[in-house]
Design a protein around this nucleic acid. Structure first.
Lengths: 144, 144
DNA sequence: CTAATTTATATCGTTCACGATGCAAAAGTA
DNA sequence: TACTTTTGCATCGTGAACGATATAAATTAG
């Protein structure tokens, strides 16, 4: 048995699992809003800065357009945003929030705190997670 | 603008991105073996201990059977493993490696090291990631 | 001013991930 | 023994992810 191939030694497995479990923990909060976690990420980007082309959103989320385009199409169908052709560059699709998309910000603003509270109940030291954020940033930066 | 809703403040986004980017980095190594990252995880579990029921594999990976069952079905079709009904409990499906599945261990044993080496080139402090592992374990344990 | 190339987005096919649900075998209960 | 509940696995439908590829507009080169 190679130590390298022990599940418990694998960082990626931890990241993969942690991400999935947090998304599951988010689910009950997103469900009443009719959105998913990746859709929430798109909204975060647009709440920060409205009217962005597909590419800028994709880059911000470290995703490819072939993931983001269908995501945006579904969100457009739900009436959360619009996708209009760019004026100077007609290849671009400028993504803008609708009133419905904007309104969700108010309803979503407390969700992260709810999750942190929920986590604090379950683990004694929540700050060790905050402490890990720079390491993750370095990793992401290295792999981009 | 709510600070809570800034993408850069979100731990889950980092985990989600880091996991995806590492899986992408794994891809060129897995592709010649004809497997995917989740399939690799299943193999890790079976290389550690062969002949396990679906439930044990699912629990080890923190996945539900409705994710693992189709995964195993695909792997069976590829000839990596077999799924036989349990003897004492006929509801169970005992998953066992085939010769082909076992043989992959030898070919996969150096992949984690390759990835670490690749990462070391790209970021100066790779140990800060190892240091984050206990925090991730605590998080996963809290969310289970 | 064409022709080659790059860029922005989209489509396609396959594999996950997962909530909801179904079903049959096993275990517990009356 | 008959009935209920639990357990183990599976199916279904939807929404991601993503590698590969396509298409049209913009840019660059010749």
């Amino acid at each position: 048995m190679y130590d390298n191939l022990k599940l418990d030694n694998q960082l990626c497995f931890r990241l993969y699992t942690a991400a999935r479990l947090i998304m599951q923990a988010y689910f009950p909060y997103f469900e009443p809003l009719g959105i998913t976690y990746p859709q929430y990420l798109v909204l975060l980007v647009l709440w920060e800065k409205d009217h962005q082309p597909v590419n800028d959103i994709a880059r911000r989320l470290h995703l490819e357009t072939n993931t983001v385009t269908p995501l945006l199409q579904r969100m457009e169908k739900q009436g959360l945003l619009s996708r209009k052709r760019g004026k100077e560059d007609t290849r671009q699709r400028i993504v803008s929030l609708t009133a419905k998309g904007k309104a969700l910000e108010e309803r979503a603003k407390d969700i992260p705190d709810c999750l942190v509270a929920q986590l604090s109940d379950k683990m004694e030291d929540i700050n060790c997670l905050r402490a890990a954020m720079p390491a993750l940033d370095a990793l992401i930066d290295g792999l981009r």
